[in-house]
Design a binder for these strands. Sequence first.
DNA 1: TACCGATGTC
DNA 2: GACATCGGTA
Lengths: 264, 264
Amino acid sequence: MLELRLVQGSLLKKVLESIKDLVNDANFDCSATGFSLQAMDSSHVALVALLLRSEGFEHYRCDRNISMGMNLGNMAKMLKCAGNDDIITIKADDGSDTVTFMFESPTQDKIADFEMKLMDIDSEHLGIPEAEYHAIVRMPSAEFGRICKDLSSIGDTVVISVTKEGVKFSTRGDIGTANIVCRQNTTVDKPEEATVIEMNEAVSLTFALRYLNSFTKASSLSNTVTISLSSELPVVVEYKIAEMGYVRFYLAPKIEEDEEETKP
Amino acid sequence: MLELRLVQGSLLKKVLESIKDLVNDANFDCSATGFSLQAMDSSHVALVALLLRSEGFEHYRCDRNISMGMNLGNMAKMLKCAGNDDIITIKADDGSDTVTFMFESPTQDKIADFEMKLMDIDSEHLGIPEAEYHAIVRMPSAEFGRICKDLSSIGDTVVISVTKEGVKFSTRGDIGTANIVCRQNTTVDKPEEATVIEMNEAVSLTFALRYLNSFTKASSLSNTVTISLSSELPVVVEYKIAEMGYVRFYLAPKIEEDEEETKP
DNA sequence: TACCGATGTC
DNA sequence: GACATCGGTA
């Protein structure tokens, strides 16, 4: 028996909107610790890791560890039917092949339940090691989103270079080149407007903008984003979910090709 | 000679936006009583009835009963050219085959007149008997609209069931099932937020969501909607137009098929 | 199905 | 003026 009551239901709505385009089907894993998901994107290039800790739920009952395979598109459709102020409860009976989403309006005048079929999904639960990163950039999520969107109108890939002074995003395309530099800046009114760079070693890595743009759909979950970079490691783009956990996106860097090869 | 001056022109704009997708061509009937319309939708499944009483107009002159056939799409196009604060005057000379819409901006700085050709339309003016209904639900129009929209992302039809406690909207589709219950609730701040159920007999009827979703385009005309249900009778979905009349939509229930037949 | 543009609201 | 939502297009 599983029953998870999430007062701020809009969080779950936003999580699904942010990952459903990247991953079609995935297993949600539920344990005493929390509600989590880990899945490769459909082209097996990026990885999504979601964690909603049990403490973040108003009521959390999970009798035994359970893995529920869901089609994220269908799940998102159902969650769209919840109001942004609704309380969402996720329910599943032991051994059942369905999950129920219950939506309670703030006034309790309207109570909805949506039942969805579960599916069997081969899960490839990769343990993701906690790594040391050469550089960690924290910046406003809206700004990062804007940069990725802007650069993708010029080129397909972005080079992210971190030095002590700042982080540089560069691209190159048929119509020209673009460089955007964000300087470290902690003298701001609100802490979430800061751009903070922790750096042990300068790094410069190349990524496909297509994926970064998909990641930034999670911007509504948090005002800030954390980008953790190391040479030879996948970048981690993390959006914290207030009081509850995070959504993290992992993306392997492109191996820099010779200039000559990129322009055949 | 016909001359109807409507100070709150936005009402007419909204009326046309709400019915133009359902009905292509229709006769507007003008008499001393008011300005009205009654028409089947293009697939002859639903019926629209509009009444704007003469008292609601600032000036109302209608020398003799007249029926004016209009293409509602074209009429809506013209009305879109009126500002929301404009005063709209509808004019027609006796025996003319055109109608003129005049728009006066609130400041009188701008005066526009649009002339539209009338058309001959076979009208099938069905007398609609005032019936007794088993159950009448009054609820916020926005809420009803949201429910119809949400459910149509899951299924094609909705079962509306009324009991003393509340009204239940249910659907079923490929990805799962959904039930939304609205409880009777009269303890609200504003009367238009109430959900009120008058019930003589429990009813449970099935309707095509496609039509209900079309009806709810009239939600901007009124904060509340009234849904009148009886077994074997078309449902009536009514939006009152402040001080003037109403738009009513009629839709026949679907005859419930056996479970076996719906799942071939 | 995903992206982009336009519209309406706060 | 900015954000969010909705509708249309690719």
